[in-house]
Write a protein that binds this DNA or RNA. Structure first.
Length: 339
DNA sequence: AATTTTTACAACCGCAGGTAC
DNA sequence: CGTACCTGCGGTTGTAAAAAT
């Protein structure tokens, strides 16, 4: 049953295309159009299967293809689109004129994926990573930093320990994420807490937030909006790329993003704009020198950006639990982790 | 300078949905 | 309605170039 793969045709050439083949293909398509890809190679005098011709044309020879390095704006756009659309490369490609799905896919796999991982973000879910291996590794790095008495120092000298190039906001987020991830661990499954006991002491003063959330001052201090569903200043889209107005309802990506398939263009662009602008704005309010150090006086209750528009949570944990309640994937996420 | 490892990306493969017969 | 075919898509592989040792 079924049709045999076209590439099983005997004697059909595979592998890299030669300039001569490219020329033949381009000449034929510019004269006759692509028409039936199946029939094209025969008519064009190419010893290739139609599929190979189509791929060569759409991914390489097409005149409207834009080659060269991805710009920073394109990077941000891809990340944002991916957070909503997932691995729908062709859909993502429609938002980047001149870029092919294949090119975007390759760029994601070779660059962006690693970048997100390095920042402590799971590239599949766009949530902070919570795998124990990663957390323990991070905790070790932070522990080293503490031993060197330079945790969260103005110089950010520990950034190098994290394998990062410069002390920018992304590195601050790594630290925030560690605590955030730990909170998630604690909240999500108490049995994991014991596994993390060796990690918690490394957080020094921040234990006060974890152990005595009620004591945490929830009224003052710089606001951090680092939604569980990603986004930092590094990744947020520029107004030029996301010109639409933010959603009035304050809907965020974690709500609409659960239905990745159903997201409209407007949702993709508008929602991200909403998140990004909030994130950017609030991030800018953070203490530049010690954004993390201020957490014991109320940063973490502010992680939940939506709480700004609702009655303020009474404790850090209230806000945190609320955030987790909103996170549809939370349960399955933990099941996965525990398995 | 030679060798090994890593990175980047073009191309392939197989599956699925749509369509013509 | 069932089958064969075409096309598009996403995952994976192969390989050349670059970087590291």
């Amino acid at each position: 049953m079924g049709r045999p793969p076209c590439c099983e045709e005997t004697g059909v050439k595979k592998g890299p295309w030669t300039p001569e083949e490219d020329e033949k293909l381009m000449a034929y398509i510019s004269k006759h159009g692509s028409g039936s890809w199946r029939a094209l190679p025969k008519h064009a005098g190419l010893n290739r299967c139609g599929k190979s011709c189509r791929l060569r044309w759409t991914n390489y020879l097409r005149p409207d293809i834009r080659r060269g390095k991805f710009t920073e704006e394109e990077e941000k756009l891809i990340i944002n689109l991916h957070s909503v659309l997932g691995n729908k490369w062709s859909k993502i490609a429609t938002h980047l004129p001149g870029r092919t799905d294949n090119e975007i896919k390759n760029f994601w796999n070779t660059n962006l994926r690693k970048k997100l991982l390095q920042m402590g973000i799971d590239p599949e879910t766009h949530k902070p990573r919570t795998d124990l291996k990663y957390l323990l590794n991070l905790s070790q790095l932070l522990g080293t930093a503490i031993n060197n008495n330079n945790l969260i120092s103005p110089s950010w000298s520990h950034a190098g320990l994290l394998g990062l190039q410069q002390p920018d906001l992304a590195h601050q987020l790594v630290q925030i994420q560690l605590v955030q991830n730990l909170l998630q661990l604690i909240n999500g499954n108490s049995s994991l807490l014991s596994n993390m006991q060796s990690v918690l002491p490394l957080l020094g003063n921040h234990n006060s937030v974890i152990n005595n959330p009620i004591e945490a001052d929830t009224t003052n201090g710089p606001n951090y909006t680092f939604p569980i569903n990603l986004r930092d200043q590094e990744l947020h889209a520029s107004p030029a790329l996301f010109p639409s107005a933010p959603s009035e309802s304050g809907q965020d990506i974690s709500e609409s993003g659960t239905d990745r398939e159903g997201a409209s263009d407007q949702q993709v662009l508008g929602i991200n704009n909403s998140i990004s602008r909030t994130t950017s704005h609030e991030m800018n309010q953070a203490d530049d020198e010690n954004p993390f150090g201020a957490t014991s006086s109320g940063n973490f209750n502010q992680m939940e950006g939506r709480s700004n528009q609702q009655s303020p949570p009474s404790t850090v944990f209230d806000a945190w639990e609320k955030l987790l309640e909103d996170d549809d994937a939370s349960d399955s996420y933990w099941k996965e982790l525990l398995e």
